[in-house]
């Protein structure tokens, strides 16, 4: 009995030692020489492996940073300037700061704004739907509502609003990795400047049809009338293919365009709301409130915790 126990212990110990030696030999034999700085850079990365930087993952990005002469072509959208500063510190390089970006959904074709004419009955995928037909409404350009962007987001920053049928971006969580931009077959989502105090003005429509047709399909469509372009003092707005576009690098957030837009297609977010928000933001009152706000625009008083309330104005 005792002998059995002893022999068992001895056998297992010998086996363990032997295997440890084998493991050690294998580990030394197959050791891959790598620049130790890759590990260091990887340590400061967010570790999301989202691919937003254009590389296969954080390690591939780190490797590219180590091998690159400067960091001009490498930028981690998730970590932003802070992470890039750390990366630069590790490698002793300089980094150009970039303005933080956020994903913006440029469609306001809510269930109320866009009457549906068809019903989709297939796999829940915008890609499949886009390959099949124009979508359930008269608008060929707008959101299809199957949530490919939601599925593509690794940060849980996009969700579908069941009431509007449109995706909503949580700007706190959004890292501007661009996965949703790639996933959207209708190219509705755009990465835009996050803006000072998260304030942004953008055209929430990409419909390239002529005014009447666009309006018929969706009451909140950009009809390409060009009023905003004329109004803009900074030349930030261009109208091409019957749809306006605001260049966020030129936009100074004066919001004059918001006031003149006849369909309410231009959205302003995170601006302080002077009046309690209207229940259903019908284009006209929205434009009026915006106008009122625009008059006092130059030095707006920051309204803390106003963002959730004003956010909802997008409805």
């Amino acid at each position: 009995m005792t002998a059995t126990i002893i022999w068992t212990i001895v056998a297992i110990t010998v086996l363990g030692v032997l295997l440890a030696v084998v493991l050690y030999l294998v580990a030394t034999k197959f050791k891959v020489e790598e620049d130790p700085r890759i590990d260091e850079v990887e340590k400061v990365m967010p570790g999301a492996n989202c691919g937003g930087c254009g590389f296969a993952g954080c390690r591939a990005f780190a490797q590219s940073c180590v091998e690159a002469a400067n960091l001009d072509n490498n930028y981690c959208p998730v970590g932003g300037n802070e992470v890039m500063k750390k990366v630069a510190a590790v490698l002793g390089l300089e980094v150009h700061e970039k303005a933080p970006m956020v994903a913006v959904v440029r469609c306001n074709g809510t269930c109320a704004n866009r009457p549906t004419v068809n019903e989709y009955d297939g796999i829940k995928s915008c890609k499949v739907k886009a390959a099949l037909y124009s979508g359930d409404t008269g608008c060929f350009y707008g959101c299809l509502g199957c949530g490919d962007c939601v599925a593509a987001c690794q940060f849980g920053a996009i969700s579908m609003d069941p009431e509007t049928g449109l995706p909503v971006v949580d700007e706190e969580k959004c890292t501007a990795c661009g996965a949703c931009v790639k996933a959207c077959p209708k190219k509705i989502i755009e990465l835009r400047n996050k803006g000072p105090k998260n304030r942004r003005v953008f055209v929430s429509c990409v419909n390239m049809e002529k005014g009447a047709a666009a309006r018929k399909a969706c009451s909140a469509a950009c009809i390409g009338c060009g009023k905003c372009a004329k109004e803009c003092p900074f030349g930030a707005i261009t109208v091409e293919h019957n749809v306006a576009y605001i260049d966020f690098n030129k936009c100074k957030l004066c919001r004059k365009c918001v006031a003149v837009c006849p369909t309410g297609a231009i959205h302003d977010v995170n601006f302080p709301a002077p009046a309690p928000k209207p229940e259903k933001a019908v284009p006209k009152p929205a434009a009026e409130t915006a106008k009122a706000a625009a008059d006092t625009a130059p030095e707006p008083t920051p309204a803390p915790a106003a963002s959730p309330a004003t956010d909802k104005k997008e409805e």
Partner: peptide, 10 residues
């Protein structure tokens, strides 16, 4: 000019 085909595509 553009008109929608049977899939609704102009």
């Amino acid at each position: 000019g553009l008109r929608k085909d049977l899939a609704g595509i102009p």
